[in-house]
Design a protein around this nucleic acid. Structure first.
Lengths: 214, 214
DNA sequence: CCTTGTGAAGTTCTTCACAGCA
DNA sequence: TGCTGTGAAGAACTTCACAAGG
């Protein structure tokens, strides 16, 4: 039974709302409550939560619901979140430095352990506690000290080349902040982060709406 | 005929690859070429490009393909990209400052014209050329000088409250960088930007794969 | 000959609805 | 009674495949 990718992508959201329930002291929740926390209440989604979870096992108790702590633990196990993941950042310009400084990664177990930049003036500098390596050294550094995930924050023109090299180094998961539609071989995960694409699809709806400012 | 949201979300990607074709001097492209630029070549997608475009009109010439310049112009018109869009940023911490400094918005017609922060020590400061207002002043400032889009970069605990207030001010599109699943009323667009969720779904695949580092 | 535009077919994803169990 | 787990039904999306037109 192949598990749809959309299901995988919802699991971290379930985990996040379960953390919230946990921190509010809830011990048991129903699929309905999880669904309501994620979507506009009223829209179904409770069935979706149950079906999604059913791909991986039977975690609930009929008549009661799900034990928050236990389900959260299961999700973390399924997603592989019970360990540290090592990441390498390529590109230490404005965007790259912001990524280095982002406090949201570490608490979730994601740590940037290498930083690279193609600008020779950058190399050797200290970037948020990391020494910046030249991009030329990617292969060498990653061979000595491998990482699980690559983060690409270089200009558009260089992004595909950098991605190809990371893949060549054995990296199987890449977070791409460059505004290009990148390509990776079968078996490599690539997730684009591009706020502009989101803005550009929102404007479609704004434009259509009467009374928009303008 | 209702146009599926997935289709809307692909249009900006089409526009982006068309820009690339244009800057390389291409005058005409086929749906096949557009598709190949977006997906792993071989996988169909050419039919998808044609069908997506067909929701909005007939832009191609049989036997030839699409005129790059003309199709790009049409897409920009459809998406409402032929104008400036004004945005307000709430939250000028590390993340907010990085967003203010991001060079990718302006060239695409998106300009941040207001910045807000709840920290009184921040208020009045200069943030990338903008005076930082107190969060208390959101209503007042937006009434005098409205924006089309809100960007939320406040801590998780405050995010839903800020979003509610922006909606109250008449904002109909919000880019949310806070790590929560926020809720907005019907008719308001909300796009989450959360790299951690993407990392957490990628680890699912990494974990499953043999020979992962760790 | 080449490529669009599009009904129809096929596939994937979501929701329903209910048996089964606490 | 209340809620899960899940086949079956339904909706949404994608791909096929071909008529039509340059």
């Amino acid at each position: 039974m192949a598990i749809p990718e959309v299901v995988i992508e919802r699991l971290p959201e379930y985990a996040r709302v379960l953390s919230q329930f946990e921190s509010r002291g809830r011990e048991v929740v129903s699929s309905q409550e999880i669904g309501d926390a994620l979507r506009r209440p009223g829209r179904t989604s409770a069935a979706q939560v149950r079906k999604d979870l059913s791909y991986f096992g039977r975690f609930g108790k009929q008549g009661r619901g799900y034990n928050v702590r236990k389900l959260l633990e299961e999700l973390r196990r399924i997603l592989g979140l019970n360990r540290q993941w090592r990441m390498a950042l390529v590109g230490t310009g404005r965007l790259g430095m912001a990524i280095l400084g982002y406090e949201g990664f570490e608490p979730q177990g994601f740590r940037i352990i290498h930083a690279f930049d193609s600008d020779p003036a950058m190399a050797g500098n200290d970037a948020g506690g990391l020494r910046v390596h030249s991009t030329d050294e990617i292969e060498e550094v990653l061979a000595k000290s491998p990482v699980d995930i690559g983060i690409v924050a270089v200009p558009a023109e260089m992004a595909q080349g950098v991605i190809d090299r990371l893949v060549q180094c054995g990296i199987r998961a890449i977070l791409n902040y460059a505004p290009i539609t990148a390509r990776v071989p079968e078996g490599v995960e690539l997730k684009p982060i591009d706020p502009v694409l989101h803005l550009q699809s929102m404007t479609y709806h704004l434009k259509a709406r009467a009374g928009s400012f303008g």
